[in-house]
Amino acid sequence: MAGRLLIEDKEVVIPGQELAEGMDYLPGGNIIREGEKLISVKLGLVNVSNRLLKVIPLVGGYSPKKGDMVIGRISSISSMGWRVNFGWAYDAGLSVRDCFDRFIEKDEDLTKYYNYGDYIITLITNIMGNKIIDISMKGTGLRKLGPGRILKICPAKVPRVIGKQGSMIQMIKEYTNCRLLVGQNGFIWLSGNNIEDELLAIKVIKKIEDESHISGLTDRIKEYLEGEVGIKNGL
């Protein structure tokens, strides 16, 4: 039996919408099969690539995935390591072993490495049943974050803030002279030379979050940044 597609590529679909009929199509992320039908379980954009369908959610919180780089906050310390909160219901465990190559004494004071309330950028290495999450600090760019601001945005908007091949984030960095790090969980760390730069960067990121679904985003943000930077330089 030949399958039939009931939607177009890049269409906004709602939970419970039938996407395709027949066994020719395969369910990807956020899609379930019920009998012969493929059904979306989330509000999002549908992506059709040959026979595989998937729904990219437009709303919702962050759910941890293996291999994600996230920004988290140290929430508690034990003798074995740290607990890190990154916006999910459960805190992730960071063991001492996954931080340093050198030997750490058993009774060493761990607060001198990462203290309560410190923000770190880290990698999710393993997830067991959504409850036990292991993270690691071994990898390029994984470190404790220095003085700066933490901003929280909707995790579904993270790809928009980063842009195609990092074009959007590169543009913000150029115009505002801020250092920026975006975690997959929607936490953004930013640090600039002065307060005005940082506030401008925050304003721009909020603007991207609000207008991410309107076409011509990159051009609009560029225009906005040029205008703002022009005012600052007295042009």
Partner: peptide
């Protein structure tokens, strides 16, 4: 619930 991104079969 749909806006919160909770997986659901139908409205």
């Amino acid at each position: 619930l749909a806006d919160a991104g909770i997986p659901m079969n139908d409205l």
